[in-house]
Design a protein around this nucleic acid. Structure first.
Length: 923
RNA sequence: GGGCCCAUAGCUCAGUGGUAGAGUGCCUCCUUUGCAAGGAGGAUGCCCAGGGUUCGAAUCCCUGUGGGUCCA
């Protein structure tokens, strides 16, 4: 780390008279103008110095502070950029949530492949950090949702190759620190109080020098100078133990926590009171929380020390609280009773804001991905509300924040929250019953509920151990929750690492030029001419590379085209088409010959169906959006010839009514016969105009992206489309299903396939109508009547069988009667089903007789029933008889069944029955 | 994307390969006519669907459908 020390010797520090010092308490190196200063100024080395001692000239609200920051940097040459969604997985697949402003520009801008939207730029980016969840409310400074205000500059080295999307240096370390100082100065801060702590940064494969900016005990900004990348041979070893070397791009990545700045400007005891004063008032009032003046005093004094409460750093909550209580000379229990409800309320306010961001940006709760995180936050919030006694509906609380954040989809947000709360209530109710039953069982045995059961309850039924404890206590059962409970759960999920199949990159195509894509020029054409650049032999086929092609390679959920390539001498079949690094490979059955001039013919019927389905996909999702809500977003799609399917994020099942409306809307668009158009705008312009909803089917790279317009719908898409919506002919929804919670799949057919699928369904209906001998319209009613009658007859038959059995037993209808000891046994062959045999046997037993009945109806079967105290074990008898027909049997001692495949031996077995009975009785 | 759990009477659920059950609700009657009252009797069911194993499957195995839950 010492190797980086030179990185902090800035000319700006020199000119401004800064001094480099080492903190005697924690050992950190820091820069300050105040030559008398000793410690680094950050907790735990120092306490907060701004509480009830606001640090700036004026108090700022959240909105005012954001504006002050953005306009300061605008005035200093930065362009203001609109924030990105909190769901970072909308433009990158390596993370779920936006955790910092730099996430907006990873990976394509930071790597230099795509230019930034502006350079330098300033932004206030909403972020969510789930890892802070346990600290929220308790430390007074942690929030799960926050805005990271930032200024970024993207630079490349003078000697870097020409391949980067931006060139040269905008500004670097000195200017960054100067701007930071300048912003403090603009708020009226005495610059002697600002401390810059050296704290090298590592993350996501990059690293660089960085500084924490401290003012009155609180970290207000982080200035990161991203300039290195991971490299086993690198000259710098960083704190993560890896080696790093300098890279061609170097980027100014700063973060100024909007909430912290707002807080410091007001000097309130906690950040929460500065950021959501109205909501906290509301919650306190709703939970009927009131404090005396003395208690208020104590709360304020606690707040100043609360920096020590950090779940990660402090040993545990209780210890930290104990220390604070000792320092304030109050009872730890009393302090806890006073602070805990307040902490819950702070957390509720924060969590509601988190939910507003998540749901406002269109995340749908689910059991996967961001949807799962959203569900976790929502349930946690609901629990906190119940604990502290807030009885206002959760959707109202979330709406308060959504309104403040100016989201337009507030009705949907409320609807989702209500649905989720209801689902959670049902889960708890179900779980509660389960725990009650289990608790009673263990209470009876006088044992505690074992850990295995606890893990099962949590993992499969979503019940927190403390909730189980609570419910079980009512039933008088003890619960022993181990400290490492959650790691035990984690252990249960451990699976042997699946060997990841590394795709062997084909390097044969590296020297070939990118194939010219003719299919975008005119999507309706199916013929073209080209030159064969190369042919590669595969196991049972050939990969043909052309200079240009009309063949569409598999991509974006659209299957590849098929067709032929012809020379003067031969015609080869194109069976599959793939694209690798811009080179399109035509997989053929024969080689057309390298250097040949070929005529290509795409299978037009197949392509037309694919185009219909692709355009129809856009139309269906557009229609679904109008019917189900603006949150509808594609979660996957697959086009086909016969049918296509799209998966979309939605929080409820799609009803039959919804389907009908979607279908009608989709066909309205078809019948309008509007033009389907494409354009290739600059990606940043497109994003600015249409937002990230463009990227329904994935994020294409490059500076220009292809947009497809259908009706009002705009999507980034690389597929082929029909010219006018009328070309689709018709759209028919075939099926809907829930792929996973929060993801609904619609399967549909377009064009010919729509007609055919409708005909197939009608055929089925007509056939059913024919069988029932009624008109199709009467099928449902008739089917119901038949089903009811069928059930009625079943009951009647059961009834008659019993009567028959009773009659047979009473009337001595055939069958051999033998005396077995003091009991009479009836041995008979009745070729009937098991039910009838059983009924007859029961009737005989009623009369005090042993019944040995055989049937040859389906295989050889026996029923043996005996009255009490006959001294015969029915199971043994059946076992013996069944073995004679090649099978087995068994059952309780008074009623046994069995059989075997050899019907021919049935009569012989029955003849032996009296002997068997006597043997068994003697035994 | 992966793991685990569940599907039986209208509802809530027992049922570990051998005659489908309980509580509750429902119907009838009796007793009472005030607090989710008491007593007697009765009806409840394609045990989610399809395949397999077995003499025999609600039960074991596979596939599907519908739901729940945990993790990244």
């Amino acid at each position: 780390m010492s190797e980086l020390a030179d990185e902090y010797r800035l000319e700006y520090f020199e000119e401004e008279g800064f001094e480099r010092k080492e903190c005697p308490s924690c050992g950190a190196h820091f820069w300050t103008r105040d030559h008398g200063r000793e410690t680094c100024g950050e907790p735990p080395c120092e306490e907060y110095g701004f509480i009830e001692n606001a640090g700036f000239d004026d108090e700022y609200s959240l909105e005012e502070m954001r504006e002050a920051f953005l306009s300061y940097f605008e005035d200093h040459g930065h362009e203001r950029i609109e924030p990105y969604p909190v769901a970072a997985n909308r433009w990158r697949d390596d993370v779920l949530l936006t955790q910092a402003s730099i996430y907006d520009f990873q990976p394509l801008v930071t790597s230099g492949e795509t230019p930034p939207p502006a350079n330098p730029l300033t932004i206030s980016q909403p972020c969510i950090r789930m890892q802070d969840i346990d600290n929220v409310g308790k430390t007074g400074r942690h929030t799960m949702a926050f805005e990271m205000m930032a200024h970024h500059a993207f630079n490349t080295r003078e000697d870097a190759p020409d391949e980067y999307a931006y060139k040269g240096e905008v500004y670097w370390k000195d200017e960054t620190v100067e701007l930071c100082d300048g912003f403090f100065d603009s708020l009226g801060v005495d610059l002697d109080e600002i401390i810059y702590i050296e704290d090298p940064w590592v993350g996501g494969g990059n690293a660089g020098p960085a500084m924490e900016v401290i003012f009155r005990g609180v970290e207000l900004a982080t200035l990161v100078f991203m300039s290195m990348e991971q490299d086993p041979d690198g000259e710098y070893e960083m704190k993560d133990g890896n080696r790093y070397s300098p890279m061609d791009t170097y980027i100014v990545d700063t973060g100024y926590g909007l909430e912290r700045w707002t807080w410091v400007s007001q000097g309130t005891p906690t950040v929460y009171e500065a950021v959501y004063p109205d909501m906290i008032e509301f919650l306190k009032d709703n939970a009927e929380l009131e404090h005396t003046d003395d208690e208020e005093q104590l709360i304020h004094r606690t707040a100043k020390l609360a920096g020590h409460m950090d779940i990660d750093e402090a040993e545990d909550m209780e210890t930290a609280r104990g220390e604070i209580a000792a320092e304030l000379d109050v009872d730890a229990g009393e302090l806890e009773a006073l602070m805990e409800p307040l902490e819950d309320i702070y957390a509720i306010a924060d969590h509601c804001r988190t939910l507003a961001y998540m749901l406002g940006d269109g995340i749908v709760p689910s059991n996967v991905g961001t949807g799962y995180l959203t569900r976790m936050v929502l349930r946690r919030t609901k629990r906190l509300c119940d604990t502290v006694g807030v009885d206002a509906p959760l959707d109202e609380l979330v709406d308060m924040q959504a309104k403040r954040l100016d989201y337009k989809n507030r009705d949907t947000i409320r609807d989702i929250v209500r649905t989720e709360v209801e689902k959670y209530r049902e889960t708890l109710e179900r779980g509660g019953r389960r725990v009650e039953a289990m608790a009673e069982e263990y209470a009876e045995k006088g044992e505690p509920i074992p850990v295995e059961e606890l893990i099962e309850l949590y993992d499969s039924h979503g019940l927190q151990p403390d909730m189980v404890e609570e419910i079980a206590a009512d039933a008088g059962a003890a619960v022993d929750v181990p400290d490492d409970f959650y790691s035990l759960v984690a252990k249960r999920h451990e699976t042997p690492e699946a060997a990841d199949e590394d795709e062997d990159e084909d390097e044969r195509f590296e020297d070939l030029p990118e194939t010219e894509k003719l299919y975008y020029d005119d999507q309706q054409r199916t013929q073209f001419e080209a030159v064969v650049l190369d042919v590669f032999e595969r196991e049972e086929s050939y990969d043909v590379v052309l200079d240009q092609t009309m063949f569409y390679p598999e991509g974006g959920g659209q299957p590849a085209d098929q067709g032929t390539l012809s020379t003067d001498d031969t015609t080869v079949e194109v069976e599959d088409v793939q694209i690798e690094d811009g080179v399109i490979l035509h997989r053929t059955d024969e080689s057309p010959g390298k250097g040949e001039f070929v005529k290509g013919q795409v299978d037009g019927t197949r392509r037309r169906q694919l185009m219909r389905h692709h355009t129809a996909t856009h139309i269906v999702i557009h229609a679904a959006r109008q019917v189900l809500g603006e949150h509808i977003r594609q979660a996957g799609a697959q086009k086909g010839i016969e049918s296509s399917r799209i998966d979309m994020r939605h929080y409820a099942r799609i009803s039959r009514e919804d389907v009908k409306r979607i279908e009608s809307l989709a066909n309205d668009i078809v019948m309008d016969n509007t033009a389907v158009t494409q354009e290739w705008p600059d990606r940043h312009d497109a994003e600015a105009e249409h937002g990230f909803d463009l990227y329904q089917g994935g994020i294409p790279p490059g500076e220009q992206i292809r947009l497809i317009h259908v009706d009002d719908d705009v999507q980034a898409c690389g597929g082929t489309h029909v010219a006018r919506t009328g070309d689709i002919g018709a759209i028919k929804v075939l099926n809907t299903e829930r792929v996973q919670d929060g993801v609904e799949r619609i399967t549909f057919a377009a064009g010919d396939a729509a007609i055919q699928s409708t005909q197939r369904k009608e055929d089925a209906l007509y056939e059913a109508a024919d069988v029932l001998d009624v008109s199709p319209a009467d099928v449902p009613e008739t089917a119901e009547r038949f089903f009811e009658e069928w059930k009625g007859r079943g009951k009647e038959i059961e009834d008659l069988k019993e009567q028959l059995a009773a009659a047979r037993a009473g009337g001595g209808g055939g069958g051999e009667e033998v005396d077995i000891g003091e009991t009479t046994a009836v041995i008979d062959r009745i070729d009937a089903d098991m039910g009838e045999l059983r009924a007859t046997a029961n009737a005989l037993v009623e009369e005090g007789k042993i019944a040995v009945l055989g049937s040859g109806e389906s295989g050889a079967q026996f029923v043996v029933a005996v009255p009490d105290d006959s001294g015969v074990n029915a199971g043994e008898v059946v076992g013996e008889l069944a073995s004679r027909v090649g099978g087995g049997g068994g059952g309780p001692p008074d009623f046994a069944q069995g059989g075997g495949p050899n019907v021919a031996d049935l009569d012989a077995a029955l003849e032996d029955a009296p002997d068997v009975l006597r043997q068994v009785q003697d035994a």
